[in-house]
Design a protein around this nucleic acid. Structure first.
Lengths: 209, 209
DNA sequence: TTGATATAATCAATCGATTGATTAACTTTG
DNA sequence: CAAAGTTAATCAATCGATTGATTATATCAA
């Protein structure tokens, strides 16, 4: 039945996303993934063509919705630039909480600059997001809302980097923050409001005159 | 000759450090490392016992100078907390420029929480570093120099994270910043002063009353 | 509805390539 | 000579990928 096929592919993607996140692209073997998904190894290639195809499928499944949300924030003409920044921080924090595992995977894969389509695709997607944020910042400068001498690109690095550092080195930052970042409940109830409040205060004092 | 042996081992470590940084632990094969180092594959095991032994050797070689960084920063009682922060930013930026490759390797391995001994070792070192910075920040709060409601731990995440994001995703940030982060000359002449100025301005507006 | 048939899904088995590691022979050095 | 250094050749294990055979499902003529 068609419904079953979709469910099974989706199940494989779920498992693959988790295993990739835990072990990285190289560390996660197709045998491990198929084994944990409870399917035959050949099914991975049957459905997704190759290991890289499987990774790309995991990747593509995640990115579509976020792009649209981001675009909507930037295109809203009825609000201030600072309000857009706040909205983006909220959206981003929510995204991190919901896709903690995957965000780690993305950054990990991007960190080791590898050959081919995979890295290029990830770069393109993240670049699009980054440019969207930069446009918001530049607009804020142009309309006099933000300081004219802000370093927009570095601000982007700060937003992404602060989050990445925390979720990508959980054994370090959990000690530092005082609670377990890898625990979903802690992530939602303590980390999320904390990074939201922090980034807003930090950027507000830097961006606004 | 003993000198030659040391030089050769050191050369292998140099190459291994770079290749590990570029491809990760899994992605870097012993054949690639030995090939690029211009030595026979068996020499790696002859010198370092195993691939992991080689990795540990790369890591241990760097630890010593890492420790030195920790000592002299917060101990100066004759200056302000903000001045210490500025000094630390300068020192850190210098560190990044000089050890760009290794810094990448470090956080790559740490973000893949997979090994026992090595991961603990890295965590301990970085934790010591982080606590040193936190002490500076807390002292600044206690003597009324900094805002009393700053989030010290998140500030640390911002300092480390902003840097890490840029040097660990060079193909992305090079596009964003407009020059090649992987070029040493660019790193020294353009990126270093830029991140110094940015972090100082950013943190100044956030920390100081 | 039934039976034949075509398509999709799944399987065990195995492919060649590559991995980290090791061996044994050779060369250099002291 | 003996020890250290170095090499090519090779090891078992595992990698991603593919095969041909088998089962399940869908389609359609009678």
């Amino acid at each position: 039945m068609d419904k079953d096929k979709i469910d099974k592919k989706d199940h494989i993607l779920d498992v693959a996303e988790r295993v990739f996140s835990e072990l990285g692209f190289d560390g996660a073997s197709t045998r491990t993934i198929s084994g944990e998904a409870g399917v035959n190894m050949a099914m991975l290639n049957y459905y997704f063509g190759s290991k890289e195809g499987l990774f790309l499928a995991v990747f593509n499944r995640k990115i579509i919705s976020f792009q649209d949300l981001l675009k909507n924030i930037g295109s809203d003409e009825s609000t201030t630039a600072w309000n857009k920044v706040e909205k983006y921080i909220d959206l981003y924090a929510q995204r991190v909480v919901n896709n903690n595992c995957f965000q780690k995977l993305l950054y990990q894969e991007l960190s080791m600059q590898r050959r081919g389509e995979l890295s290029d695709k990830i770069t393109d997607i993240l670049m699009k997001n980054a440019l969207e944020v930069r446009k918001i910042l530049k607009d804020g400068v142009d309309n006099g809302e933000f300081n004219k001498d802000i370093d927009a690109e570095m601000v982007i690095a700060t937003i992404y980097g602060t989050k990445n550092f925390i979720v990508n080195t959980p054994q370090l930052t959990s000690k530092l923050l005082g609670y377990d970042i890898q625990n979903d409940k802690m992530l939602e109830e303590r980390f999320k409001p904390r990074i939201e409040a922090y980034l807003k205060t930090l950027l507000k004092s830097y961006l606004l005159k």
